[in-house]
Design a protein around this nucleic acid. Sequence first.
RNA 1: GCCCCCGUCGUCUAGCGGCCUAGGACGUCGCCCUCUCACGGCGGUAACGCCGGUUCAAAUCCGGUCGGGGGUACCA
Length: 568
Amino acid sequence: MEHPRPDRLHLLGHDPATRRRDPHGHARGGRSDGGRRRGRGLRRGPRRAHQHRGPALTGLPFITQQPQRTESDTVTDAPVDSRPVRVRMAPSPTGSPHVGLVRTALYNWAFARHHGGTFVFRIEDTDTARNTEESYDSIIELMRWLGLDWDEGPEVGGPHAPYRQSERGDLYADALDKLRASSFTYDCYCNNDEVDARRKASGSKVMGYDGFCRELSDAQVAAFVGEGRKPIVRFRMPDGSVSWDDLVRGEITFETEFVPDYALCRANGDPLYTLVNPIDDALMEITHVLRGEDLLSSTPRQVALYDALIELGITDFTPRFGHLPYVMGEGNKKLSKRDPQAHALAYRDNGFLPEGLLNYLALLGWAIAADRDVFSLSEMVDAFEIGDVNANPARFDLKKCEAINASQMRLLSVEDMTHRALPFLKAAGVVGDPVHDADAQLLELAMPLIAERINKLTEAPDMLGFLFADEDGFEVDPTDAEKLLDDAGKEVVRAALDALADLHPWSTDAIQTALQTALIDGLGLKPRTAFGAVRVAVTGRRISPPLFESMELLGHDRSIGRLRRALG
RNA sequence: GCCCCCGUCGUCUAGCGGCCUAGGACGUCGCCCUCUCACGGCGGUAACGCCGGUUCAAAUCCGGUCGGGGGUACCA
């Protein structure tokens, strides 16, 4: 307002007619580059050959190849591709964290680790109306559970602290002041109704702000102020087009006539996402922005804003952008927070391994190899290339997620699985907390029986409960009892009792031989019927670990006791 | 409406002009193993949205079309 407003393009030394908006030197407005070399940066291969005619630059962490600029392009931003990689995850703490967030976090993390870069964690909590501390806590908890460690961020600090936007107000105010003092922005006094009315009257196809306040005279400003209007600050979108070489989609171009001037803050001065997100990325020197495809359409605004930030000396380069596909739910809708499958922490509570969830989520848009889909995090780090990420949305399939989790369970040692199952066993009351020595010993013997047959940790208490239950607390599943401990079943149990009462030694083999002789050979029963009845009597369930081993662990007296008890 | 993104089995994907009568995984179906459950093993099922063009050759490149999704805020 009080500052002079040099023509922005003039200020940049550009000819308005030829100014290209793309910071990486791509041909303006076109997808075809006529065979020119271009800054393909970290993209791996010519995935879409029509978009990438340059030589394949295979996965080098720091590509120094510089896109060529035209003579009119004098912006001196440093080459982002020659900088050490810095990526970030920037969730808003609203509600319970979503599996889509986990996938985004994972790709960012894997990208950082693959390139030996820095993974920054930042909390975007500027929307005080929607943010909650619970949500913040659960995001932290989630990241810790997953093992996606961050190098800078909440709880760990770092050179760009603080990492919660709610504590960075001064930084935004400062940036906003600088922006406002330039011609990159202007104060806007319009209200929504006025904008709508003008849009309607003009019959424009483009929605959004129409630039009415772009060139207000001092008298007009005085009049608005006189009415008591408070301005917001709008970013002045440049003429022409904005394009960038998207890390997962190739070159994307927007004509800026379809990208209206946008608000950077509220009338009360509160900064908006449109400002704080790029400001933080700039201040934190983020080199690669990997985020959901829902932000795709706000990218031309950010790219344009970056030009301004560079000009104002707030940063000296524009990051590369990569837009990750959605994680979809049932039907063709984005997996909604309403969907129980969406809640990331629920997978922990339901007995999934972090390895399982992460492995599955990695598969939603990326593949480690043509014929493999079970892998470790470190294998992923070795292999992960952002250019290999698929651009098309993926549907979340719980069945496959469970199958991948099961595969990861198979990879655990029995000791490890015991360790991981322990919280679930404690929570179910199967073992005490702390665990008694006797229980710990029993557990050590029992886990091998189930380690190969459970697909989630929550199955451990179900399978092992009978072993740890004292005889007063031991219960038989009523449905299973009704089915298998009918009169015929009780006959079987009686025969088993006779065969086992004086059995010595009490070993798996001896038990098996004794029962086989008495029930299969003696009574001529089918193994299924014979052992089924005994199983329910001894373990309380139709489904259990292997019967003879289970009985050995249970011991002679308790086994016999349960057989007696089944007879009523 | 306008802008942008996306389009290979039911689902996730491999595919980078000839290795493709399109590979793997999950699901599903059948069989084997078997004391239940699970694991494991074997086999079957099933896809390049459509139309043009380029090429000796197209799932792959180009154009169009249709379909799906997202955006179009003083939300993020």
